[in-house]
Nucleic acid binder design. Structure first.
Lengths: 172, 172
DNA sequence: GGGCAAAACTGCATGATGGGCATTTTTGCA
DNA sequence: TGCAAAAATGCCCATCATGCAGTTTTGCCC
C-alpha cells in the first residue's frame, strides 16, 4: 500500500513489494496470486472481522438490525481509525479497473458469507435475504463513495445516515 | 467461448484465440486487455443494448417499471435465445475468480449507467436511485443463479418471478 | 538442549502476457 | 484511381504465474 501510494499502482512491481517485505518474489506468489490480491488483503481482514461480528450477534436479533450492529461493532472495535486507509483504497479502485474488479469479487464473497450468517433470522416479509444483503452492501458502497468525495465527516456518520434512509422499506 | 468450453479456461491461450479468429496476437491486445475481457465481450453487448432500451422508455415512466420494461424488451428483441450462452458464462464465472471479478466490474459499470439513465424519473420515496438499481441488479443476479441451478424454465420467467417478489417494497 | 518431521521459504526455469514502437496493410472517400 | 486515416501486424522486452526441487525455519517431543 505504501509503495503504491508513493509510486503509483503501475510503477510497483511484485519484486519491489517482495523486497520491501523481506521475502522472495516466489514466496509472494505463495500467498497472493497477483498484486491486486495483495493490495486488497487489508480489506479482506475487515471482511472476515465483519462476518465474525455478525455471527456473534444474538440469534433472535432480526437480520437488518444485526447487520447494522455488526458494522458499528466492527468500526468501533477496530484499533486505529480505518478512515484513511479506506479512502486510499477507494481512490485506487476507482482509478484501476483490475483493482476494482478484485474488490467487487471480494464483496460478492462477503455477500455470500453474510447471507449464510443471516440464516434463521427474521427479515422483512417477502424479501429474500440475498436481496436484503444486496441492499445493505449497496448502502455501504453509497456511503463510502459519498464520504470519500466530501471527505469531511467521519465514515461511520455517513454510513449511519445512508443506512437510515434505506431502512424505511427494509428495517421492518 | 467455444474454445473455452472445449478445452477449459486455463487451457486456452490468447494466441489460440487469435489464431481461431484469424487475427494476430498483437491485434487481440489492441481490442482486449486480457482473456477475461474477450470472454465477457458478449455480455458487454447485452449490457449496452440494455442501457439503450432503458433510454428509449418514455420519460414519464417511473424508474422501476422502466427497468422492468427494458429487461423484457431486451430479452424479446434479442434474435436467438440468450439462455444457453448466459448459462455457460454463469458457470465459467462461478469457477474462475478472475472472470467473476471482471464480470462484477462490468455490472458496476452497468449500475452507473442505469443510474444515469434513470435521472429525472420518479421512484419510491426515500430510496436513492443508486439503491434502487442495486436492488434491481441483485434481483437479476438472484434470478440467473436460481435459473442456472434448476435449468428448467425459461430465463425470462424466473427473472419475472424474482422481480415480482422484490417489487412489493420498491415498485411504488 | 537436541533432534526430527512438517511447514515455510527460496531459486530456477518456462510458457504466457501486456504493451510500446515502427511498419505494413486495409479501408473509406474524394 | 489515389491518398490519408485507421486497422493490423511484427518485433521486442519487462513482468508475471507456476511447477519442481532443494534449503531453511518452526514446532514439538524426548
Amino acid at each position: 500500500m505504501r509503495l503504491t501510494v508513493e509510486r503509483g499502482f503501475d510503477q510497483v512491481t511484485v519484486e519491489a513489494i517482495a523486497e520491501a517485505a523481506n521475502i522472495s518474489r516466489r514466496t509472494f506468489s505463495n500467498y497472493f496470486a497477483c498484486k491486486e490480491e495483495a493490495l486488497l488483503h487489508g480489506e479482506r481482514l475487515y471482511i472476515d472481522a465483519f462476518v465474525r461480528h455478525l455471527r456473534e450477534r444474538p440469534r433472535e436479533e432480526a437480520a437488518w438490525p444485526a447487520l447494522r450492529a455488526a458494522v458499528r461493532a466492527l468500526y468501533l472495535s477496530w484499533g486505529k481509525p480505518m478512515d484513511r486507509e479506506w479512502a486510499a483504497r477507494t481512490r485506487l479502485a476507482r482509478d484501476h479497473p483490475s483493482l476494482l474488479a478484485r474488490q467487487l469479487a471480494n464483496q460478492a464473497q462477503l455477500a455470500q458469507d453474510l447471507e449464510a450468517a443471516l440464516d434463521g433470522r427474521a427479515g422483512p416479509p417477502g424479501v429474500r435475504h440475498g436481496v436484503l444483503v444486496a441492499v445493505f452492501l449497496a448502502g455501504l458502497r453509497t456511503a463510502v463513495v459519498t464520504w470519500s468525495e466530501e471527505g469531511e465527516r467521519a465514515l461511520l456518520a455517513v454510513v449511519d445516515e445512508v443506512l437510515d434512509e434505506v431502512e424505511a422499506p427494509f428495517g421492518g
